[in-house]
């Protein structure tokens, strides 16, 4: 079976800073894969490099068996879409939800726009009442739902999720995580999800990779993590930290 995403010895360099130091990764179709690490670990950079938003210095990225060049074509964006971390920064401040959702359809020349927008809004649990609102008239959770609708409207097979809930309140986070699981099940999507929170990654993903300083620390399954079968000290530290504060 060809991997949905295959990353091989990927290096990303920003102005002489090596943000990724030869990371390899395989994600199977329909799988949900997690990237965990702290700030500066390179987890978001890896995601952005796949999306074509970070300068790749060497190594290769293949999506659905097709190796990607430095330029992505329109067909790529029909396959791969992304949801950003900050719901306040990822929606254009001067556009209504309607306009935001129309844009990808216009770029790719869809004619049944009206129907697709309705369906996308229904799918993310926002009724028609939200269609003509501006982003400042929406709460954080609603914004993130719009961002998910926008990513899904082109019917991609792979969704890149960059800390999609870290800016949300815990109760809203649960709703958004449930929504993401639901659409994955319905559309048989492949997820590549970045988070600093081990609990979220074990909840959402079957396999995960722990990253630190631009390198992979170890590859684990969610079950490994639940039973604390980890081999590296760094992962153990992360696990301990996620239990909360323990008085010395």
């Amino acid at each position: 079976m060809t991997a949905a995403i295959a990353v091989d010895r990927l290096e990303v360099i920003f102005d002489r800073f090596r943000a990724l130091k030869g990371v390899s990764l395989d994600v199977q179709p329909g799988e949900s894969f997690g990237l965990v690490g702290e700030s500066g670990s390179g987890k978001s950079t890896l995601l952005r490099a796949i999306a074509g938003l970070a300068p790749v210095a060497s190594g290769s990225i293949a999506v659905n068996g097709k190796t990607l060049g430095p330029r992505r074509d329109k067909a790529f964006y029909r396959e791969v879409q992304m949801v950003f971390q900050d719901p306040y920064g990822s929606l254009h401040p001067r556009q209504t939800v309607d306009r935001l959702l129309q844009e990808p359809l216009a770029i790719h020349g869809f004619v049944d726009g009206e129907k697709r927008i309705q369906r996308a809004l229904d799918e993310v649990g926002l009724g028609n009442g939200f269609r003509f609102r501006y982003s400042h008239q929406l709460s954080g959770g609603q914004r993130q739902r719009v961002a998910i609708a926008r990513a899904l409207i082109l019917e991609p097979s792979i969704l890149l999720l960059d800390e999609p809930t870290s800016a949300l309140d815990a109760s809203v986070q649960a709703e958004v995580l449930n929504l993401l699981e639901e659409v994955r099940k319905r559309r048989k999507l492949t997820f590549l999800m970045v988070s600093h929170d081990l609990a979220i990654i074990t909840h959402m993903c079957e396999r995960l990779m722990v990253m630190q300083g631009g390198e992979a620390v170890e590859n684990l399954t969610a079950a490994d993590l639940v039973e604390r079968r980890v081999t590296k000290d760094y992962t153990r530290n992360l696990l301990r930290a996620s239990d909360g504060f323990v008085r010395a």
């Binding site: 999306a51 074509g52 938003l53 992505r72 074509d73 329109k74 790529f76 964006y77 029909r78 879409q81 992304m82 950003f84 971390q85 900050d86 920064g89 990822s90 929606l91 254009h92 401040p93 844009e103 990808p104 770029i107 790719h108 961002a147 926008r150 082109l154």
Partner: peptide
């Protein structure tokens, strides 16, 4: 460099 311009780039605009 804002995310909303990145998002439009990611649509292939």
């Amino acid at each position: 460099n804002s995310d909303y311009i990145k998002a439009v780039q990611l649509m292939g605009a």
